[in-house]
């Protein structure tokens, strides 16, 4: 599904990623953890095609094709979805209009017929149940005036509607209380299947109690310094990032 080889990248001249290598197969859930400033969000934004980041070295392959030259919308149409850490507000544009336009663009690129308003309404109502969202959100402007939790739920709703092949969840747990966290994680779990890959980017282990990953990677200074199974997350929870930092500095094997 996704192969990242020795990826180096920068934003406005500042180097953030220093050689990341990562392999994600269909159906796998990978968690990328790391302290603040380690490059987690950069990686997420870069995979989605944010124009501010420059790739200096290395490559990203998605379904066997090089991603680096592809515009963000082409990536979305190819099935890559990013749940934003800070979802963007678009005043005056209703959620349903926004999402319907996006979905129909994606469908068009796949050679599918666009959904009409009624079909779409049926679809969105069904998907809203997944994240326990009130139907009033259908006509509310995109993310404007939403609470933090509502914004994050809205991201997962969009994921459910767009049915991506590769979903990247960027700090989807930040700013959520425990009830909201459970709802969001429940939504994500219902979207797990053997064809869909998910990358969960997070600072804390908390989310991983609810979305249980197959693999955990620790990112530090723009590099994956340690990989393991879900137990690695628990280890981090117990000992913090400092222990791994010491291990890395002392040359303990990764």
């Amino acid at each position: 599904m996704l192969q990242i080889n020795n990826l180096h990248a920068s934003i406005s001249g500042k180097k953030i990623l220093n050689g990341i290598t990562l392999n994600v197969n269909p159906g796998e859930v990978h968690a990328i953890m790391g302290p603040n400033g380690s490059g987690k969000s950069t990686l997420a934004q870069l995979l989605a095609g944010h124009p501010a980041y420059q790739i200096l070295e290395g490559e990203i392959k998605y379904e066997g094709n090089d991603l680096s030259e592809l515009e963000a919308e082409k990536r979305a149409q190819a099935g890559i979805f990013l749940a934003f850490q800070y979802p963007i507000e678009i005043p005056g544009v209703s959620n349903s209009y926004f999402l319907k336009t996006g979905l129909n663009e994606i469908r068009k690129s796949r050679g599918q017929e666009p959904l009409d308003a009624f079909e779409f309404l049926k679809l969105i109502r069904e998907k809203m149940k997944l994240v326990e969202m009130d139907e009033s959100f259908i006509n509310r402007p995109v993310n404007q005036g939403y609470s933090g939790g509502e914004k994050k739920r809205n991201e997962i709703l969009q994921m459910a509607v767009l049915e991506p092949k590769l979903a990247i969840l960027d700090e989807t747990d930040s700013g959520l209380d425990i009830d909201a966290l459970k709802i969001v994680a429940g939504g994500v779990n219902k979207l797990r299947n053997s064809n869909r890959s998910i990358i969960v980017v997070t600072h804390y282990q908390r989310l991983l109690n609810y979305i249980v990953p197959d693999f955990v990677h620790v990112l530090m200074n723009g590099k994956i310094v340690k990989s393991g199974g879900k137990e690695l997350a628990l280890e981090l929870e117990e000992f913090g990032y400092d222990k791994i930092k010491v291990e890395v500095e002392n040359g303990v094997s990764v």
């Binding site: 963000a72 005056g92 209009y97 996006g102």
Partner: peptide, 28 residues
């Protein structure tokens, strides 16, 4: 903002459609 446009593009819209959508929302 670039961020608004990027958000729309991430959901499958091209730049032109993204701008048109944002501006029309503003003038709604």
């Amino acid at each position: 903002g670039e961020d608004q446009i990027f958000y729309c593009k991430q959901r499958g819209l091209n730049t032109e459609n993204a701008i048109s959508m944002i501006v029309n929302g503003f003038a709604k």
